[in-house]
Write a protein that binds this DNA or RNA. Sequence first.
DNA 1: AACTCCTATTGAATCGATAGGATGTGTCGC
DNA 2: GCGACACATCCTATCGATTCAATAGGAGTT
Lengths: 343, 343
Amino acid sequence: MPSGKATSSDVAAAAGVSRSAVSFAFNNPQRISVATRERILAAAEELGYAPSTLGRMLQAGTTGSIGVLLPQGLGRILENPYYSRFLMGAGQVCDQEGYTLLLTPPLQDSVLKAIPYAAVDGFIVCGLEADRGEVAELTRRGIPFVLIDSDRLEGAPSVEVDDRGGAREVARYLLDLGHRRLAVLSMDPGAEVPVRGYRGPLARRLAGIADALTDFGLTMADVRLAEVPVTRSEGYRATVGLMSGDEPPTAVLALSDVLAYGAVDALQELAIKVPAEVSVTGFDDLAESSWFRPRLTTVRQPIVTKGRMAADFLISAIRGEAQHPHQTLGTSLIVRESTAKPA
Amino acid sequence: MPSGKATSSDVAAAAGVSRSAVSFAFNNPQRISVATRERILAAAEELGYAPSTLGRMLQAGTTGSIGVLLPQGLGRILENPYYSRFLMGAGQVCDQEGYTLLLTPPLQDSVLKAIPYAAVDGFIVCGLEADRGEVAELTRRGIPFVLIDSDRLEGAPSVEVDDRGGAREVARYLLDLGHRRLAVLSMDPGAEVPVRGYRGPLARRLAGIADALTDFGLTMADVRLAEVPVTRSEGYRATVGLMSGDEPPTAVLALSDVLAYGAVDALQELAIKVPAEVSVTGFDDLAESSWFRPRLTTVRQPIVTKGRMAADFLISAIRGEAQHPHQTLGTSLIVRESTAKPA
DNA sequence: AACTCCTATTGAATCGATAGGATGTGTCGC
DNA sequence: GCGACACATCCTATCGATTCAATAGGAGTT
């Protein structure tokens, strides 16, 4: 019983041939006689030998897997169905093209540090500010990548969503209904906003809301804003805060469905009727949102398609085919039961 | 502008030192003078050099990532929230221990073929029949692994769930309510059942149902059985079939929540009231099941915990610490609104 | 000036496998 | 009996980095 680390030299020795012969036996049968091949394979079986994955990858210069560079830990990321859907889309392409998918969370809270530990042919980079160093690092290393949920950047392929249009549409819808006291329940943008301003999808969604407000003679100063991590319980907590004080909002516009669920939880807890007393909207249109009660009014974005395109673009880039394509996907307002005219 | 493939030799040449010095500059700063180090780092920056991930892994003999060997393509797997939850659990441990997670779908419909293409320190093997060759292959290669949703096997750590007990409990519950005409909506066991019989969780769940039936003087021959892939739409389709004919069942016992959703879809389509006319139960207790209307009666299994334990066991095995632990997790019947006495 | 000691640095081996070109052996034809 | 031609097999360089053991050089001591 070998220690599980038989090498091609061992097999070669056992079969009385050279290491090349061993390699040929596995990858190039026609370059070797049948008898020798059998002998080699028998020896390999005996010793429990199988070609080392790393050895082959190093030699081939390719890993056959694509990395997904994630902005948060796996435990938290996979809690959000948004990412499941996204990975599903990317996974469909991987299935077709025979790639594996390496989920790469930050290392010691640093996305940058995680890069050198991923043996991949390219990265899908999720939800990162495009000028934070990761992009520069990947460029420097010459690793192909595609940006998702980020800012459009020259020289880097990306798949975007019309966040601004979507947010404008849902905000306008609420204003049209007659709501004037809005609360915006937003995802936590990190600590750098004071220095650097909003970035990526968040910036675009806020801009969209501002667009709509302008049409009604309002500004962002007229809405209450809460910024929290994207979990249902944080959405709950923040909403409790938003509803306290004088003149509470008549509509909560959440920038994520998951946050909207939390908002409804809070309102039910406070015995405030949705949508009769307060309207709630989300963003994403997760599958859960049509099951949720009240069925959630939200902005649909094509998450699975986004995943598919990201993987497609990346694989093209890996093959050296594509020239940094950019793609912007549309959104649509899905009106369901969580919104109504203000009381 | 280099072609993105600077090697340690290039840097060494540029800085006028040996390759060893370059390596030290990055990994062992105290073994080299400050001046030289600076010079090397400058040259590295200039050339866009970063140590090759594969090179380092080969040398170190470790990849820092754990593989998840999946029974189906990624596109289909991630459609099922069950796997999202499971991966979330495993991901929590990965976050803590600094591992990445490699999702490895079958290659050309073969799980076995996928193994050599995954550069990992070990595998979590999901939903595979333990004697189908994959286990033998992993053992032969000496790669650590943990079995999930499989059969208990000497010499291989595994995390199981008390499927039999859970199924027995839900079946008995339906029989206690007075249901006698049951339909079982089961996941597709693959083509080998006639030859090899049922395996793994499916076998245990069917056995649990049989246990309960026996207590009531019935056998599996008295229930209608449909076996389909685990998707909502397949559940829908199968249920339409189950309800046709004489003496349709008064209760549908699905072996997966996702299938149960499909069953309810079908019954609503057929204008059959749930639970007034027909009861439906699931298995898993996905988060969605408490949102679903009617809220789904189901068997809860601790999916996230399962994921955590699997990763824990695997990492112990990788470190050479553990001795093939087995663990069986309990289930519990969650009674909600999709079940009632027969009309 | 010679000797020791220490430190920065290097050479070579190792991790495993692959593949292009060279070599050897055997058979066939003339 | 000798040259040509196949075919099987081997040698060696390559993929990139790490690391142990060895060395060169300089500083310090007597």
